[in-house]
Amino acid sequence: MSGAFTKSMARNIFYGGTTFFFLLFLALSFDTMKQLPKRDMRQNITPSIIAGKHIWETRDCIGCHTLMGEGAYFAPELANVVERLGSKEAVKAFIQSRPVDGIPGRRSMPQFNLTDKELDDLANFLEHVNTINDANWPPNIQG
């Protein structure tokens, strides 16, 4: 019965192969979790940065922008926006000055009416994300 192609063998290989590669993936993920502290600047995470991430999420910024290249492709990458616009104040001013009815004919950012503290938190969060060691992505300041 050599050279047969039995379904039971195919099923066993499916179980063996899947378990094998899932364990391998867990091993690599475990090592990643061990290496991350040296790369993700978690020691710099302040309550303000945490609040900033909360603002980032509750305004669904990811629905138009990308952060570290992930998200929507409608608006610019924001992981390096503080560096691109020059300062946190510039970023805060930009967010604050969004016209309520948008800019005629242009892609428009809503006016979120953020308080000063919320603006500070959001700017701190974006500045923090830029310090993460992400294999120096993006290729240039334009993001």
Binding site: A10, I13, F14, G17, T18, F20, F21, F22, L24, F25, L28, D31, T32, Q35, L36, R39, D40, M68, G69, E70, I132, N133, D134, A135, W137, P138
Partner: peptide, 23 residues
């Protein structure tokens, strides 16, 4: 489905290039 999972599971790695995970 064997080929799917033996390539796809570790294939998650192509999302871990630029988000701060080890190189």
């Amino acid at each position: 489905v064997t080929l799917t999972l033996i390539t796809g599971i570790i294939g998650t790695g192509h999302h871990y290039f630029w988000i701060g995970t080890p190189e």
